[in-house]
Amino acid sequence: MAELIFSPPWFFSIDIIFQFLSLLIVLFIGLYSFKIYKLTKKVNYKYLFLAFISLTIAFLFKSFINLSLYYHLLTRFGLVKENVVLYIVQVFALLFYVLFTLSGYLILVALTHKITNLKLISLLLLLMIFGVVVGQNSQNFFHFLSVILLLFYIAPYFFNNYKTNLSLKSFLVFACFLLLAISHLMFLFEVISKQLYVLGASLMIISYLLLLVNLILVFKS
């Protein structure tokens, strides 16, 4: 059986708090994007809403996996009795976490690179799903793909937007996606040391907190 826990035990509860916070932040951004779409009818914001809702669902699965792995919630409440069934449930939850995260990133790539061809987007999504499901090391493939998508496709777009606007808010958005890429890079090497998982998780929450700061600044203005 593949290893599912990469966090050191002292980090379990902090990890769950980080994920819950990230879930709330991406949900807020998603809902605000939907509000903008309803107001302006700009289709880009419908896709931004879909990207962030996809990330919200991913965090729901991730929180479920971690609650189940760290605190044995499923067995404690007698929902699952056999270890094999528990393992299958956790693996599927992990798979859905990976697929929803990658879908969110892919929508962001399509959005920032103005890819409107649905056939092309679904082909990319299918290739990613294939790689994750069939690949020998799905976790590494997932983090590797995330680094590529974030570092070479999403972050550069937001860097260009920052260069155009030169505003703190656009810098925060760019910094968020850059840190998110670095966090996935840390996760890529989590098998080497559990401390890298802690570093990755910390960078991930910092990146989403930057988005929250951006949202707060927008609301305060």
Binding site: I36, N44, L48, F158, N165, K169, S170, V173, L215, S221
Partner: peptide
């Protein structure tokens, strides 16, 4: 302002 920060 939100739209400008994302530039979409």
């Amino acid at each position: 302002e939100f739209m400008e920060s994302f530039g979409l």
